[in-house]
Design a protein around this nucleic acid. Structure first.
Length: 420
DNA sequence: TCTGGGGTCCTAGGACCC
DNA sequence: TCTGGGGTCCTAGGACCC
């Protein structure tokens, strides 16, 4: 029987901030999303105030101020650097590892079980990560990934040790009969509602004991798989390979409404630049480009978008900027208050892959373009992001988002620390 | 007037995740 | 007045083919 562990960093963004600013310890801390829009991380003190995850900050600002919550903008440079450090330690302890998100990883402990006490192993791992990075973690252990997720949830909520090892399915019935069905990994808002209203399933145990065929009819193979995973039958395996992305998205809300076509074009050129950089980083080229604009508030927003075929597939920033700007010119309407723009690269393939169609126009990624792109990437890697930019991205960039409450990028931008 | 059956591929959209 | 950003997987339905 396989043994999976899910390691999850507690209140990750908050813990990162606290690791570098001890004055935040034991104080209520909340971290906001890009553009200071939503609350995306909360310290335990803030959770205890019943501030939910992912809610618009402006609706909770008064409560936060009243309770003296330290509210911070996101500092993704810091979080991703800290994430790498944590994952490195996990990999040293257990090479069979799947980095699932910025603050989570699955470990396959099956091979350890024969000669290692799993609980002791988990305790050591927690101590190591805490001592070497300052980040507290929780660990859930079970025989499937879905159950390990649940075990982690229990480790966080119901243990003081931060480690929970789930007993066999029979022995965990009592516990699972108290957990709402929405706690399951893969059961979201919609599925939870339908399970309750149409199937009379309210708890984890309820879904575990449902008829897999009936669940499949209502929720496809995805639902059926969850039932089996809950029964301890492993359907999901560790995905250790660092697979290249199938799509690359770059998008941002504007700091203020944008009405000028030129600013819109600049913002899209900027997103293309970032997306293409990531594309080249994974040694790939894209066969398509999607450009999206949003106007108006969420809920009553209007969207417009264009799919653009890139043939032959390319990784060249200027080629993509030209096409993306053309799309913006087609969509632009005077007087509209635009709130967000974004691009998505799709049909991504390795650069080595050749086109099947020999009748295509001449190869676009000429040696000169290859050189220019590589130069830009090298300069930005060595000198820091945005040292070399395309003129099409503009110089003023008034549309950029606000992040006035951001902490210094302690681990990646030493100049910011010196100017604190 | 009558109008098969089976298969593949592609895409848009939905649901979910953190 | 103010609601993030970046992903994955699955399915239905249409186009197309024989």
């Amino acid at each position: 029987m396989p043994i999976y562990a899910l390691v999850d960093c507690n209140n990750f963004f908050v813990s990162c901030e606290r690791a570098f600013d001890p004055s935040l310890k034991d104080k209520p801390v909340a971290v906001l999303s890009n553009n200071d829009g939503c609350i995306v991380a909360r310290s335990q003190e803030v959770k205890d105030m019943n501030v939910p995850m992912g809610v618009p900050y402006f609706q909770w600002r008064a409560l936060c101020q009243k309770n003296d919550v330290k509210v911070m903008s996101s500092n993704y440079h810091l979080y991703s650097d800290m994430s790498k450090r944590v994952m490195k330690i996990l990999a040293d302890f257990c090479p069979e590892l799947e980095v699932y998100s910025i603050d989570e990883a699955f470990l396959d402990l099956t091979a350890f079980a024969a000669h290692t006490n799993i609980r002791e192993f988990c305790n050591k791992l927690r101590m190591a990560v805490l001592q070497w990075t300052g980040i507290p973690i929780s660990i859930g252990v079970a025989s499937t990934k879905t159950l390990a997720k649940l075990a982690n949830h229990i480790a966080k909520k119901k243990t003081s040790s931060g480690v929970y090892i789930m007993p066999s399915p029979q022995d965990s019935s009592e516990l699972l009969s108290h957990l709402p069905v929405e706690e399951i990994w893969g059961v979201g808002h919609r599925m939870g509602k339908r399970l309750r209203e149409e199937y009379g399933v309210f708890t984890v145990k309820g879904l575990r004991d449902s008829d897999p065929h009936q669940i499949r009819r209502g929720f496809s193979v995805v639902g059926e798989r969850i039932v089996y995973e809950l029964r301890g039958i492993s359907c999901l395996t560790l995905e250790e390979m660092d697979e290249p992305s199938k799509t690359i998205v770059a998008s941002r809300s504007f700091g203020k409404a944008v009405t000028l076509r030129q600013e819109l074009e600049e913002s899209v050129a900027w997103h293309v630049t970032r997306a293409a950089e990531r594309l080249r980083k994974q040694g790939a080229k894209a066969g398509g480009l999607y450009v999206m604009l949003r106007a108006g508030q969420i809920g009553k927003a209007s969207y417009d978008s264009r799919y653009i075929s890139l043939l032959p597939a390319t990784f060249d920033t200027s080629t993509m900027i030209a096409k993306a700007k053309q799309a913006v010119r087609e969509m632009y309407k005077e007087g509209v208050h635009y709130k967000k723009s974004g691009v998505c690269l799709y049909d991504i393939m390795p650069q080595s892959q050749t086109q099947g169609d020999m009748l295509l126009p001449e190869w676009e990624d000429t040696p000169k373009r290859v050189t220019v792109n590589r130069l830009v990437d090298d300069v930005n890697r060595i000198m820091g992001d945005d040292s070399l930019v395309y003129a099409a991205t503009g110089t003023k960039r008034d549309w950029r988002m606000s992040c006035s409450l951001r902490s210094p990028r302690y681990t990646t931008h030493w100049n910011e620390i010196l100017t604190v």
